[in-house]
Design a protein around this nucleic acid. Structure first.
Lengths: 204, 204
DNA sequence: ATTGACAAGTGACATTGTGTCATATATAAT
DNA sequence: ATTATATATGACACAATGTCACTTGTCAAT
């Protein structure tokens, strides 16, 4: 987390710094992000940077979490309108993510973040389904049509959708073929649905 | 790729260098891998390192691909013994990967590699199912029981299994609860199977 | 055995970047 | 006006990278 000093900064200055950070994240490879470039761009002294952030890491993590918080809000907003059918829920989530990477003011930042999420890392946008997170999904997903006999089963099903959605996002970044990849996701969801839906035909 | 000079090196020296690289990969955070440490450990001059490798990147990529090649061979060997049932194929792949991270001489290297695979990156062990790769899977997977009406469908199904397996590997690294995560994967595979299998009951 | 030409090895060096700290400046508090 | 406290600064010590002019080793041709 940034220091109190940083948060007390006049908004204009704070924004100038954050914009400089974003510019650097977008421009450089993640591992080559340079504080030097950031302080030059933001027109602050090197020492000041360290008055605001503990370290480079600290700054990157803060910015990522900030962006992900915005994404999460967008997702929640969209999910209000969703019918609760599980495949639609995850398609909505996918659409939100892609929207941020295509239409958002900070689209390049989002793209960079998503391209750099690691397998063994916490995954901000869709947290892996732990107990606490379950009730986030419970709010939006109708469970009646699911082949589950326990909370555990529900968690497993969520994790399947989570994995497929993440995978599709990753591929979309790689191929940049948005139309095609969305169709592929729909097909994947459809396949899974037939398995998890009682009775189960193959419509999406 | 390393230079010709590197490949011409006596095996002993080559190994000493590779072991030094592995040690550094295991010890340091991926983005903090230091050539300084490597040349000290391997007892070669800094300049020599650059005679062998184009860059740090080049060296890391080479080592990762080398390890992944070994993994791939192990996977192929195990798949020979497999019955061709798609869930068993992917469970076998998962088991091979976990085996490398638990029992192999270079287990820590594998763990580090898998923990650092990014969403938007090529994924060495199980390449994303493109046309060329399909026939790798075709060799080992029986298609008769799958709900497919085209090659495209087959690819989609493979990608689902691919995503689930990757996800499970990622989680296993994170939780380190091997037993539990394997059970979870089996449940996931079982859920998916019911969807892709004609008729489809829920046995794994 | 000597030569010479090419391959391999070396470490000092220029460059770039990091995080710190003593000092300077601004702001608030009495 | 004076003191205290918070914020800003950039020079500095340190560390790592990649390069290059130079040394050393190898080996075929004479």
């Amino acid at each position: 987390m940034p220091t109190e000093t940083f948060f007390k900064l006049p908004n204009e200055k704070k924004n100038k710094i954050l914009e400089a950070v974003k510019k650097e994240i977008v421009t450089a490879k993640i591992e080559e992000i340079s504080i030097k470039n950031i302080v030059e761009e933001a027109e602050i002294a090197r020492g000041s940077f360290y008055q605001y952030f503990q370290s480079k890491e600290d700054m990157i993590v803060y910015l990522i979490e900030k962006q992900m918080e915005q994404l999460k809000q967008k997702i929640e907003k969209e999910l209000q309108k969703c019918d609760g059918e599980i495949t639609n829920v995850f398609l909505t989530i996918y659409d939100c993510i892609i929207h941020q990477m295509v239409k958002n003011k900070d689209k390049k930042v989002y793209a960079k973040i998503f391209a750099n999420i690691k397998a063994g890392e916490e995954n901000y946008f869709l947290k892996p389904p732990k107990e606490e997170n379950n009730h986030f999904y419970e709010k939006y997903i109708h469970k009646e049509n699911l082949k589950i006999s326990s909370e555990e089963d529900f968690r497993i099903i969520i994790s399947i959708f989570h994995a497929i959605t993440s995978y599709s996002v990753g591929h979309t970044i790689k191929t940049k073929d948005f139309e095609k990849e969305r169709q592929n996701l729909i097909k994947r969801l459809s396949y899974i649905k037939t398995g998890i839906e009682k009775g189960g035909s193959n419509i999406c």
